[in-house]
Nucleic acid binder design. Sequence first.
DNA 1: CTCCACGCTTGGAATTGTTCTAAGTTCGTT
DNA 2: AACGAACTTAGAACAATTCCAAGCGTGGAG
Lengths: 139, 139
Amino acid sequence: MEPLVTRLRNREWRLTAQRRVIAETLAGEHVHLTADEVYERSRAVLPEVSRATVYNTLNELVGMGELLEMTHTDGRKRYDPNVEERHHHLVCVSCGRMLDVRADDPRLPEDQHHGFELLAVEVTFRARCPECVPAASTS
Amino acid sequence: MEPLVTRLRNREWRLTAQRRVIAETLAGEHVHLTADEVYERSRAVLPEVSRATVYNTLNELVGMGELLEMTHTDGRKRYDPNVEERHHHLVCVSCGRMLDVRADDPRLPEDQHHGFELLAVEVTFRARCPECVPAASTS
DNA sequence: CTCCACGCTTGGAATTGTTCTAAGTTCGTT
DNA sequence: AACGAACTTAGAACAATTCCAAGCGTGGAG
């Protein structure tokens, strides 16, 4: 599918230099950066980008549905540009590395709905990544 | 199953007045309080409890496996004393109300493991609760 | 029983992630 | 070229959480 920047060009949304740099930072697969990582990487390309603009832009993109926001167990939010393909996440409990994975959605039995109107399902597989498995067994 | 406080008595862990009050605050089903809510409720019972002790105790209980920690989309962590029964969560996207629900765990296909060693699965059903459905349709 | 050491608790300061604000800049329109 | 709207900025403000140094309390050694 088209990268984020391309999708943004086709919207009535002012694509300024700052916004373009921020969007380009978020290109690719298995990208799950924190706001601060986006800020640092954007600044490496365009030094005068401000933190406020990064936060503003990220929040707008989430609102526009061009970015998914999620919260890791540590306090900060992460942003995932992969919004077209339904997917879940595989997260390493020790280093935090995160990958997009495809798996069937679990179904909520009718007697468990409690009158709620279902909208979406989020699945996170907690695991230990190949680099962290050896470290864990020696400790 | 036994309530949290009972389980704690059977451990080598000093059950002080503060810790007991905090643990009692977290009794029951469908309890998913934030640290601050725990603090306020504990203080209503034992006014000289400090915020630091609440945070310390919650973190210790999480480390001991007697409490589950999770992060809502808003920044703060919530604590769930229901650790014995495997369950998932049903969350209202507009008011944040959260219930424990039973549903089958999704399976991650072998070709999606990426060499990771699976430890756990977390599922969150996002939905609108009965009180919030009417409000959403009129807006 | 008394005393001591260690673990627990405290209030406040520090840290971290995020949002707000007021002022300055840029862009598209005319 | 001039204007207004939208965007950006630095820094202040805010909220959740952790850190810290000092005080307290309790259980075990004597």
